[in-house]
Design a protein around this nucleic acid. Structure first.
Length: 489
DNA sequence: TGAAATGTTGGGGCG
DNA sequence: ACGCCCCAACATTTC
């Protein structure tokens, strides 16, 4: 209900949850009535436009957040345009005395937020920002020389050494909302007006079938994971043929869940007597949270992480960037089954198993010698968890251009990787159904199958399934030669 | 959070 | 019985 007391604005961004939301918590604690905003900003300079899959996710996420707020008697107001002018205008028109938000770490976002904070303060409006997305602020972890870390293991040792992260904030109880005046001059948008969902063609069927973008679904996924998959995670996490990873990545990306919540739940689950998961399983899982933290650390200190090689010598890398072979990769038609399975899983569901991400990324940047940035772009557009830090940092890691990267000569053999981590070929059979009848002994190398095996499986190489787009041995040698050219002093 | 090439060892076949 | 060769099997190094 509108009251004469000034309201407080809660500006939601990549923190689309009610629990453990410091900005929301601070606004509640102020005892003011709330205005909950989301600004869809395609105008401010430098912000990277969301990819297609992320837009689809955001649509569902905003719908779910609005519903959750409605249950508390309010709702989410969606606005469209440049963040600065919108936030300032809403504050002005409603007489809000405070604006609360949770921090973001991409450079364009930080620049925008800094300006808004200054401008609000200049008008006597309280502007406060919080950490909702990370266990550790990127600037709070430094090495002995007070410099940022460039190596994960050292980073993570220091982070762990700082003690346990803060406990998450509780789910908020009663909220009181401010009734926005109907005459608000800032135009509000209906969710549908944002056109976040694909129309023609509607390619999102597989996404809908696999994901529920909400805070509630995030908590359910976490509970399910610690109950059934955490045990054995240390090994199981590498098996794309099994459901053994948490699949929390898109929930983290949009802030349906926080790393603090994940940390606490996983830790409590491994408390004595609570679970058969071992300390090792837990540490492996927490280290994955650690990689995300490290990625944000890298992004904060290297704002161009998605564009610039962390190792400048890679600027001279003789990439080939052949459009045709890029397309075989994007479409899952490289002729290497485990690569194709991964790329099709990505296209169909907006997500790919992490082990297969590494294999597919290695294949693009090494076997095809295509600039990792083309791959990063494709993942950005197709992943529901496309994250400004993790996506860029992981691509640089695989390509070898990262600070703490896999050495360039570490080239995955897609056949061996497939045989090792998808031993029965179940993952390939599911995502590359035209190979489903091949015996497991050749499923990762159909070009080595006998004529009888191929005929028996209804496979005709070059017709029903492609011949390998490159020869592994030759491609490997070519990659090593290319690397040599940038490695000479 | 590799794979391939090269080196070493030891058992077994065989003259 | 012995030396020689072959080659797994494993270890090391190289990319």
């Amino acid at each position: 209900m509108g009251t004469s007391a000034p309201p407080a604005i809660v500006w939601f961004r990549d923190d689309l949850r009610l629990a453990d939301n410091p900005a929301l918590h601070a606004a509640m604690s102020s005892k003011q009535s709330l205005i909950c905003l989301y600004v869809y900003d395609e105008e401010s300079e430098g912000l990277r436009a969301l990819g297609g899959a992320a837009k689809w996710w955001l649509h569902g996420a905003l719908f779910a957040l609005d519903e959750a707020l409605a249950k508390k008697g309010g709702g989410l107001t969606i606005l469209r345009g440049a963040s600065a002018s919108i936030i300032e205008a809403v504050a002005e028109e409603t007489g809000a005395s405070a604006v609360y938000w949770n921090r973001r770490y991409d450079e364009a976002g930080r620049v925008i937020d800094t300006k808004i904070k200054a401008s609000l303060k200049a008008r006597g409006i309280l502007a406060e920002s919080f950490n909702a997305a990370l266990l550790h602020e990127p600037w709070s972890i430094a090495n002995k020389a007070k410099a940022p870390f460039r190596v994960f293991s050292a980073f993570w040792r220091e982070a762990r050494g700082q003690g346990e992260p803060d406990a998450p904030l509780p789910v908020p109880g009663k909220l009181s909302f401010y009734a926005l005046p109907k005459m608000l001059h800032v135009k509000t948008s209906a969710l549908a007006d944002l056109k976040l969902e694909p129309e023609k063609p509607d390619w999102a069927g597989g996404l809908r079938a696999n994901w529920v973008p909400s805070e509630k679904a995030a908590q359910a996924a976490l509970a399910h994971f610690v109950k059934t998959e955490l045990k054995g995670y240390a090994l199981g996490r590498d098996r794309p043929d099994q459901v053994s990873t948490s699949r929390l990545s898109p929930y983290l990306r949009f802030g349906h869940i926080s790393p603090r919540q994940i940390w606490q739940t996983a830790r409590n689950a491994v408390a004595p007597g609570m679970s058969e998961a071992s300390e090792k399983d837990l540490e492996k899982f927490l280290a994955e949270i650690g990689w995300r933290e490290f990625s944000y650390h890298l992004l904060y200190y290297n704002p161009d992480l998605a564009r610039e090689n962390l190792q400048p010598r890679f600027d001279a890398m003789p990439w080939i960037n052949d459009t045709k072979s890029l397309q075989t990769w994007q479409r899952g038609l490289t002729g290497y089954p485990v690569v194709d399975a991964g790329m099709r899983q990505l296209w169909m569901t907006g997500w790919m198993h992490n082990r297969v991400r590494m294999i597919a990324a290695s294949f693009l940047s090494k076997h095809l010698l295509i600039d990792w940035r083309r791959g990063e772009d494709w993942f950005w557009d197709t992943l529901v968890d496309a994250d400004p830090a993790s996506n860029a940092a992981s691509w640089q890691w695989v390509a070898g251009s990262g600070a703490d990267a896999a050495p360039y000569f570490r080239i995955f053999n897609p056949t061996l990787q497939g045989e090792k981590f998808d031993p029965d070929g179940a993952y390939v059979k599911h995502w590359v159904p035209e190979l489903a009848k091949l015996p497991a002994s050749v499923i990762h190398k159909p070009w080595k199958a006998t004529a009888g095996q191929l005929a028996g499986a209804g496979v005709e190489l070059g017709k029903t399934y492609p011949q390998p787009v490159v020869d592994h041995d030759a491609a490997r040698k070519r990659a090593l030669e290319s690397f040599k050219t940038i490695n000479e002093k």
